[in-house]
């Protein structure tokens, strides 16, 4: 094992193109350490970002929230204005692991790790977040919902580092997130869903039901067209075009898809009641 410890961004980006082979960037380390005891070989190289200055920012402007590469869930929980502006980000942050994980785990790491169960990605996606990627050659910005290409696969090139996440500010009339884990806290999502509604229309994202966290565009289109539902099954038939759950150690495909549609159905049903509002 080798740990590279650059103290500035330029050096970090340069180390990513070294001929010795691409190191794995490490921020909070909460995903990498889970698998540490089961590692195959000890010759992995890590790019430790902890000494790179300027990566822990959390900036809320009139137009957007900018999250740095090393900004943690806890940073956002503690930033009252940002948490108020983006309540689902704060809720998702609280649902990740325990406080020890929340204080180390980073939003950018949640994206880079590419887990289909990522809670942070779920919330960022329904807020229309984009990912800022930087390399020695260029800086580019990719919408989060176009970032993933498959299970733990993304458009990020090995020479690129996620240096920031930009979340645009919009006026929302509906914001909702639900996570179903095997227990109430400290659990990996078995199925999760987030929904927002702004003047741009509905956004629905789900986790643990596809090779990566995904938007449910068929359902969004139906909602945007004013469709209402009389049973969870109706929601599910639309979702079947958007998701493809699998059975693994944590749950079954049937459970995941069924619970996803039931959560959405009953939440939408509450909106139809006189007390609900959109």
């Amino acid at each position: 094992m080798k740990v590279l410890q650059p103290d500035n961004l330029a050096e970090a980006l340069r180390l990513l193109v070294e001929p010795d082979g691409t190191p794995v960037p490490i921020a909070g380390g909460t995903d990498l350490c889970v698998h540490w005891p089961a590692r195959d070989l000890d010759n992995t190289r890590f790019l430790d970002l902890s000494r790179v200055a300027g990566l822990s920012r959390l900036t809320l402007t009139h137009n957007a929230l900018e999250i740095g590469a090393r900004t943690t869930y806890w940073d956002l929980i503690c930033a009252a204005d940002a948490a108020k502006a983006f309540p689902l980000l704060a809720q998702a942050a609280r649902l990740v692991g325990a406080i020890q994980i929340q204080t180390r785990g980073t939003w950018a790491g949640n994206i880079a790790n590419g887990s289909p169960a990522a809670d942070g990605v779920l919330a960022m996606m329904v807020y229309g977040a984009s990912v800022v990627l930087q390399s020695v050659r260029e800086t580019r910005e990719v919408p989060l919902d176009e970032f993933f290409t498959g299970y733990k696969q993304s458009v990020r090139r090995p020479d690129e580092l996620i240096v920031a996440i930009r979340v645009p500010r919009r006026a929302y009339t509906f914001e909702w997130l639900a996570k179903v884990g095997a227990r109430r806290a400290q659990a990996i999502s078995k199925v999760g869903v987030a929904m927002t509604r702004s003047e741009n229309g509905w956004r629905v994202a789900a986790n643990s039901v596809a090779p990566h966290v995904c938007r449910c565009r068929t359902l969004e289109a139906a909602l945007n067209a004013g469709r209402t539902f009389t049973s969870p099954q109706e929601v599910r038939s639309l979702l079947s075009a958007d998701v493809a759950a699998i059975t693994d150690l944590r749950s079954t495909a049937e459970y995941r898809e069924r619970v996803l549609s039931r959560l959405i159905f009953y939440r939408l049903a509450e909106l139809d009641k006189p007390s609900g509002h959109v």
Binding site: A185, L249, R250
Partner: peptide
Amino acid sequence: MANTQFANYIIPTSND
């Protein structure tokens, strides 16, 4: 046993 981690073998927390 295949789920040999506390991430996958779920015991109750005080919350549960």
